[in-house]
Design a protein around this nucleic acid. Structure first.
Ligand SMILES: [Zn+2]
Ligand SMILES: [Zn+2]
Ligand SMILES: [Zn+2]
Ligand SMILES: [Zn+2]
Lengths: 173, 173
DNA sequence: ATTGACACGTTATAATATAACACTCATAAG
DNA sequence: CTTATGAGTGTTATATTATAACGTGTCAAT
């Protein structure tokens, strides 16, 4: 079975583990585009052609892309081909929670669960470059406890793990 | 009382919370330099003049510095003033666990607990830029559990929190 | 003496990111 | 209607961060 189509989507939300599994990614992507449009309408923000196109490009795969790679794609699509074009769209999408920035890669990846602000942990496969978003409630709880013991008030935090995804653990030399 | 000299050092090791507290930082720094030299001897690595100077510079404060700021300091000290000089020394120190890289700032900070390889969580004050290293055992445990549920094998991970340190929580506008 | 490994200095360039300004277009006052 | 006003885009230029590649000196092992 190549696709796990209807069964894996619950209320329009992909399970996070889907990134590492073969799945009907076209569905995955179009589902998120629809949610992005809904969010924009709800919030009164504008999902303009450039912004929409950037999100589409990032949604093509469960991997992160550098700003300049996105830019090149935009250019071939007839949009401006100077860095600010890409960075502005990316920054907008990040602010809206539709895209996450992966610090370790200086790259961007489409959010696979756009909703209320969430800051997932990222699992980044160093072989296939696939990025998955893990729920961080317990991780954050532990981090907050550590911060509390310093009387440090966390405002935002970044959690990124590099390693091997299930698929690539088998195929390593 | 300005210093909490002898009481805060236990077996030559500063408590991690010290970064956010007034303390005898000269002691703090010289203590770590000694440990760095010992480590180098033990491991058969060379703490050359440039490398040593870079560590000294980073040890001047509990803050992170960009590679180019380090480089400028090196240049005024008569070392080479081209980027590779700084980056090579920094990369060496990072590999030896004597310096940590702060991803969110593209900057480097001296390790305040150099010993066997450890990967702390960083608490970064956005007001005063002080960086503290928090112990991450519980955080990492939680992260590993999350990764396990993906069958993802973590190789290394980055945990960085931005926020306000205890001192700066009072003095915010 | 010769070799090889390592560190350092230098030149040049790559990769990532932002500042600043001009133009368009939509919408809101006047 | 027309005239601000603001948001978004495109462009030029530049800033910031990082590495590639090559030559030289030092020192230990052969
Ligand atoms: Zn998908
Ligand atoms: Zn993989
Ligand atoms: Zn100190
Ligand atoms: Zn502070």
């Amino acid at each position: 079975m190549l696709h796990n189509h209807s069964k894996t989507y619950l209320g329009g939300t992909a399970t996070p583990k889907i990134a590492f599994i073969q799945h009907d990614h076209a569905h995955c992507a179009s589902d998120i585009m629809k949610r992005a449009e809904l969010l924009a309408r709800t919030r009164g923000t504008r999902l303009t052609p450039v912004r929409r196109r950037v999100l589409e490009i990032l949604l093509e795969k469960h991997q992160a892309m550098g700003a300049y790679d996105v830019l090149q794609r935009l250019a071939t699509d007839g949009f401006g081909n100077q860095p600010p074009v890409a960075y502005r769209a990316l920054n907008f999408l990040v602010k809206q929670g539709l895209v996450h920035r992966i610090q370790q890669l200086n790259a961007f990846t489409a959010c696979m669960n756009p909703s209320e602000t969430h800051t997932p942990a990222f699992l980044i496969c160093k072989e296939c470059n696939v990025v998955a978003e893990a729920n961080t409630a317990p991780v954050r709880r532990a981090l907050n406890e550590a911060a509390d013991s310093f009387c440090f008030a966390i405002e935002s935090s970044t959690i990124e793990a590099i390693g091997l995804c299930p698929r690539c653990q088998g195929s390593v030399i």
